[in-house]
């Protein structure tokens, strides 16, 4: 009975840790889009600031 309870607790802890690891990987992987394929930055001229 006690051995079964300990196994249940152990499995629960393992499941929680694995779940947290998967959530962390899902949270940080990938990128938020595709960089622009054309175009670039240029400074505004004085007459464009108004």
């Amino acid at each position: 009975m006690a051995a079964g309870l300990i196994a249940l607790i152990r499995r629960t802890i393992v499941a929680v840790v694995v779940g947290m690891a998967v959530a962390a990987v899902l949270r940080v992987r990938g990128r938020g889009g595709v960089p622009p394929q054309t175009g670039g930055w240029r400074e505004l001229r004085d007459d464009e600031l108004a």
């Binding site: 622009p36 054309t38 175009g39 670039g40 930055w41 240029r42 505004l44 600031l49 108004a50």
Partner: peptide
């Protein structure tokens, strides 16, 4: 904005997309 640009903080524009 012109006063800000005159102090060296120059605004830019993304073009060509």
């Amino acid at each position: 904005l012109r006063a800000v640009a005159d102090r060296g903080l120059r605004p830019c524009r993304f073009e060509g997309f």
